[in-house]
Amino acid sequence: MKLLTVNFLTCAVKTCKTSSESYPLHFRDAQLEQNPQTFNPLFIRNILSRLDWSALTTTANELGLTAMLPDHNPADDMMVDSEGATEEEKNRAKDNVISEEVLKKLHTFLVDTAVIEGKLVCGNCGFEYPIKEGVGNFLLPPHLV
């Protein structure tokens, strides 16, 4: 499971959703793998503003990958002074300011790095979601549905 995907996941238990402890899910016994994919700057630029940066930082810390991640979301730099700007101008600003180097680094962290074996654990209810051969299982037993 890619680190990007983990940023879009919370606990599947409905009563956990509202708890701040349920996001992000925490890795346990995680076995990492690097699987380089073709650099896709368009994609990284498009999804940057949708990432929860503090959750991403937590994930990076837990996996000992803090060095791979900028300390804040590069997309936040673009929000400044963009009130009156058109969509076109905003996009152009993004192209200019987020350097290819930063985008490449983010691509490596978000897309190329995956957990192939391990568990994701909810900080609220403690439920463990297993990851096997890169596929996470988020099915719940009947008493949690």
Binding site: L4, N7, T10, K17, T18, Y23
Partner: peptide, 30 residues
Amino acid sequence: TDRFGDCLTSDLTNTPFRLRGLDSSKSSRW
């Protein structure tokens, strides 16, 4: 393969995906 994100085993009715307005994260729709 380069455009593949992930596959999960999960149920839409009990989804683990981030839901704007329902979960605690203040993050945007994605």
